[in-house]
Design a protein around this nucleic acid. Structure first.
Lengths: 133, 133
DNA sequence: GTTGACCTTCTAGTTACTGGAAGCCTTATG
DNA sequence: CATAAGGCTTCCAGTAACTAGAAGGTCAAC
């Protein structure tokens, strides 16, 4: 199975698949002419990667997950720990983002948005104390 | 005022301030010996940038905000529009992140986390249909 | 005069790709 | 057999926004 077919089968762009080969994440066989050749197992791994990346795992996380996935003796605990760490990161990002949203929403509310040059958003950005700051 | 002092006054790392000079965001005067020289106005801009970056505005957004900030004739509406666009992006990211969190939390819940090699997280990543998928 | 703490510029690395160019391989068609 | 279209290969460069580090100039103090 060549790159394009592997792309179709896994849902990843061909460029990305070549990149994953380059960084040693999924290394395909090579045919006599040098073309990459992906077997079913490799395509499964690519699909695995697609899903893991969508869930926000970094490439490094993926590398670990992949080796756990490969390892028949892997402990479910290891996978769970990795996922939990990731969950904690997501929660941290969520609360940051919530806070950021609140601040920005306050500013937008406070801004009259007409053509006068007086603007609370710029004032706040410039360092003036806002009501919530 | 040299870089280090400007850093202390604005709250940005000196490296970042040099970078902002390099990309033409805030261009300081230069002293006879070539050292950067930041006046109060420049430091204000740096502080402005720090705040805007914290709020998640991109460097490109910041460039626009800075020119609006500079422009005495700027319409408050323009600033508001920029902030609102940004708010919409944040909301999109928030809902994505919420969804991702829910999926991952389900998986972690479903994972027994002991030493047996059977793991729902890897199963899901590998493409099996999970209850919620 | 020499130590130490500044400053300068430049290069390269980070994350995870993406786009594009130059050039080989394969297949179909006239 | 020539050629054109569409694969495939590699490599180089660019993205965002810095950050780390190296080589070397400058300055104030002792």
């Amino acid at each position: 199975m060549n790159v394009q077919s592997a792309a179709a089968a896994s849902g990843l762009p061909a460029k990305t698949i070549r990149y994953y080969d380059e960084i040693g994440l999924v290394t395909p066989d090579r045919r006599a002419n040098g073309y990459r050749d992906y077997n079913d197992r490799a395509v499964q791994k690519l699909a695995f990667l697609k899903r893991a990346r969508q869930l926000g795992f970094s490439i490094d996380d993926c590398r670990q997950l992949l080796s756990l996935y490969e390892d028949k003796q892997r402990a479910s605990k290891d996978v769970r720990t990795l996922a939990q760490q990731h969950l904690a990161e997501i929660d941290a990002r969520l609360s940051e983002l919530h806070e950021l949203r609140a601040t920005l929403a306050d500013l937008v509310d406070a801004c009259h948005g007409d053509s006068r040059p007086d603007c609370p958003i710029l004032a706040d950005l410039a360092g003036a104390q806002s009501k919530k700051a």
